[in-house]
Amino acid sequence: MDLHTLLAPGGRSKLRRSNHTRTNVGGWPVVLQTLLNGQAEEPMMVGTLVVNRPDHPWPSEVRVSKSQEKYRVESMAGELLTVHTPDRTVVFRPDQELPDQFDHGPWGVVGTHSGAIERRDPYDWTLDDFTVPTKPPVQVQFLGLPAWEIELAPPHSKPAPLVMIVDATHGMTYAERSLRYGDLYSWTNIQVVEAMSDELFEYSGPTHSH
Rank of each mutant, 00 (worst) to 15 (best):
R16K: 11
R17P: 09
N19C: 08
T21A: 15
R22F: 06
N24C: 14
V25R: 13
W28R: 03
L32M: 15
L36V: 06
N37P: 01
Q39P: 02
A40D: 11
E42H: 13
E42D: 12
V46N: 13
G47W: 02
R53C: 11
P54I: 07
D55V: 08
H56G: 12
W58R: 10
W58P: 07
E61L: 08
Y71S: 14
V73P: 00
V73D: 03
S75I: 04
M76K: 13
A77G: 12
L81Y: 06
T82F: 05
T89A: 15
T89N: 05
V90E: 03
L98E: 08
G108F: 01
G108K: 00
G111P: 00
E118Q: 15
D121Y: 01
Y123K: 00
Y123M: 01
Y123T: 00
T126A: 00
D128H: 10
P133V: 12
T134A: 13
P136A: 14
L143E: 04
L145P: 04
W148L: 10
P155M: 08
P161Y: 02
L162I: 07
V163I: 14
T169V: 09
H170K: 11
M172F: 11
E176Q: 14
G182P: 13
L184G: 06
W187Y: 15
T188R: 10
N189K: 15
Q191H: 14
D198F: 00
E199D: 13
F201P: 02
S204K: 15
